[in-house]
Design a binder for these strands. Structure first.
Lengths: 200, 200
DNA sequence: AAAGCCATGTAAGCTGTTACATGATTTT
DNA sequence: AAAATCATGTAACAGCTTACATGGCTTT
């Protein structure tokens, strides 16, 4: 069970890969992609403070390199460039479905956003893998439910078991809803590889 | 839009209200309620460290009082007692549905757990209010969806809009699943007021 | 003249995670 | 003799949120 995959940091890697000059970007411009109205803002909130913090961390772990780029009549930019390791990490992350249903709302949506724009074929694969993950989860939840029903006479704590049943039913219903949505997404018209972005 | 309601702290208030001696409890015993196998553990994870931290905070804000209770042949206990303010806060919290669908998985389940045990009639009301909240949310999401479809020709950013549509569809499907589950819960057999708990 | 944009951050505070400290007593 | 139970915490660290600092340039 993976503990957390830092969607914000991977989103930054994705934005760099998707940049006007692919593989490059700087803080202020990246911050615009998370401001209200931008598609990513509906899914992931990222204040400038945290964004710069993440950029420093990405540099520390070697997924980006930094270089100061002076401008005339404007403050210098700190331009970050994806390294080979950074690209590899982005590919790995984009290929891995999320383990928990609750992670679909945030992390999976971010993966999908970038996978579609960077490599539509891999996006289809990601959706398929996520469906499979949901199916396995559903099977596991169903099994737990059956075990609970089977052992319910043997126990004295009828109250606790009723509650555990509610919890499992909620998880099942959320997981099934996610699976149904994934099927819709898989059936929907595919986007084509995006041209260079323009943020007005 | 409420920012967060600290389910762990309210769960502690609930456990105190539900105690063998109603309104009283101490850290070590409360910690047992969050250990594996206990019904609350399926929903809320709370390590001893955080539990003691929360107890201190509850005392600071005046929702509990503390008194040291010596024992012979055992370490002294720090016994916490619900204050009038603490009881009022618990009642308020138990009566308020959660605003976001993602909060149903954790916070609403905790509310439901305690509402059923402390006051089944209020639990029914809570479920009804939560259903109403889900209905409103669904209506709002549908409206956003319609607005998006209507304005989609006028925009040049077809890619972003397609993605926003996916996001809204996921939220809709999750919200509807939660609403359906709530209907099941409302229809399910009701528990009776629980007797004093026993944690073996 | 004021407001806002460009571009970078820092600082403080809260929540949460993991692991360990302490020391007596009871069970295996 | 070793391990678990009782009972309370602390320490270190990571992540997030909110707010503010700086300072030149451009738009209203």
């Amino acid at each position: 069970m993976p503990p957390a995959e830092m969607p914000a940091e991977h989103a930054i890697l994705g934005l760099l890969a998707l940049g006007v000059r692919p593989g490059e970007g700087y803080g202020y411009d990246l911050a615009r992609q998370f401001s209200p109205g931008q598609p990513l803002a509906d899914v992931l909130r990222l204040e400038p403070g945290m964004l710069y913090h993440h950029l420093k961390k990405l540099e520390r772990v070697g997924w980006v390199d930094a270089a100061v780029e002076p401008q005339d009549a404007r403050p210098s930019r700190r331009v970050y460039t994806l390294t080979a390791a950074g690209r590899a990490e982005l590919r790995r992350w984009l290929g891995a479905p999320v383990a928990r249903t609750r992670e679909i709302r945030l992390e999976f949506l971010v993966k999908l956003y970038f996978a579609r724009r960077l490599d539509p074929a891999r996006a289809d694969q990601l959706i398929a893998d996520q469906q499979e993950t949901c199916r396995r989860l559903e099977a596991s939840l169903l099994q737990q439910r059956r075990r609970l029903d089977a052992g319910s006479e043997a126990s004295d704590d009828a109250e606790g078991i009723t509650f555990q049943r509610l919890v499992l039913d909620l998880r099942l219903s959320q997981t099934r809803a996610a699976a149904a949505w994934l099927s819709e997404v898989a059936a929907a018209p595919k986007p084509h590889r995006t041209a260079l972005r323009k943020t007005p």
